[in-house]
Design a protein around this nucleic acid. Structure first.
Length: 289
DNA sequence: AAAGCTATCAACCGCTCTATA
DNA sequence: ATATAGAGCGGTTGATAGCTT
């Protein structure tokens, strides 16, 4: 079901993702968001291409994804939407919360194949006469439901997960009303692993997506002054807005850790000049990281 | 029990779209 | 208006679990 790991010509890993890689990617995105897929793996300490990271996140790691088989309602919805808009998998996925375009595409392709075997005539008319397809699928559905009933399995509830993410999520993340956050230990590991695993990555880019706005990672700064001067020196072209975004976006994830940092700072209001942040005592801020 | 076949789905590939300089 | 880079999308591939012979 998964590809065997391999390495491409520039040393980037391919194939199945390990749990460690998943954890790194999940932790990084939870902390900083996916501000730049191409650069993200470097900063997250992953030997993967950005595209691979993006796909892994969107199709597997992103919180809120449903795992397990599609429900009958979801299948009907897919058939109906496919009838209306065709192979617009992402558009169909948008109408099915928790489902990915890849999942829907896979479902469609495997079921189309199944239906073609059953009734090749129906498939020739799929687009203009999808009802035929629907009928065939209904028949298939009935059979599978019958099989399930014979085996004593509930036919309708297919939403329960057996995938690694749902098994591990409670251990890896604290789920609260405020969202999902790393517990303290994971957070500490995150600080040490993804960033330090690539010692050449002395800087990280603000999630405000400005490609030239780089701010020194406080943990990597040789001094507090390095960190704060990196926010202000003319060689770094962060605008007030960038700095505002840097300060707010990574910490707007409502993690308990970040919340505790915020709780210890005077409130910073939106639109407030960022320089007011720099009025905070540098040592205090540095220690908070 | 073993070999062959099929279905599933994670992952990759390459093209298109969009934003930015 | 054009070039370029990054993101997104749909098509395809390939490993493997499970089923059939």
């Amino acid at each position: 079901m998964v590809r065997s790991p391999s390495v491409d010509k520039i040393g980037l890993k391919r194939g199945a993702w390990s749990e460690e890689e998943d954890n790194k990617l999940r932790a990084y995105i939870k902390r900083y968001g996916h501000w730049n897929w191409r650069l993200l793996p470097k900063f997250a300490g992953l030997a993967r291409c950005g595209k691979s990271c993006r796909l892994r996140w969107l199709n597997y790691l992103k919180p809120g994804l449903k795992k397990g088989s599609l429900s009958k309602e979801e299948e009907e919805m897919i058939i109906k939407l496919h009838e209306e808009i065709g192979n617009k998998w992402s558009s169909i996925a948008a109408k099915l919360p928790g489902r990915t375009d890849n999942e829907i595409k896979n479902f469609w392709n495997s079921h189309v194949r199944k239906c073609m075997k059953k009734d090749p005539k129906a498939m020739g008319k799929t687009n203009e006469k999808s009802q035929n397809m629907h009928d065939v699928m209904d028949e298939n559905e009935k059979e599978s439901t019958d099989e399930q009933m014979e085996n004593g399995i509930a036919a309708t509830d297919n939403t329960s997960s057996t995938e690694p993410f749902s098994q591990n999520i409670e251990e890896d993340w604290i789920i609260s009303e405020n969202g999902i956050s790393l517990d303290d230990e994971s957070f500490e590991n995150f600080w040490m692993e993804p960033i330090l695993s690539n010692t050449s990555s002395k800087n990280f880019i603000s999630p405000s997506q400005s490609s030239n706005s780089s701010i020194t990672n406080p943990k990597e700064s040789s001094s507090n002054d390095d960190f704060f001067s990196s926010c202000t020196t003319s060689s770094v072209t962060n605008s007030d807005e960038d700095l505002w975004s840097f300060w707010n976006e990574p910490f707007s994830l409502d993690t308990s850790y970040n919340q505790s940092i915020h709780d210890q700072l005077p409130p910073v209001e939106e639109g407030h000049p960022f320089t007011s942040f720099l009025d905070y005592d540098a040592d205090d801020l540095f220690n908070l990281f």
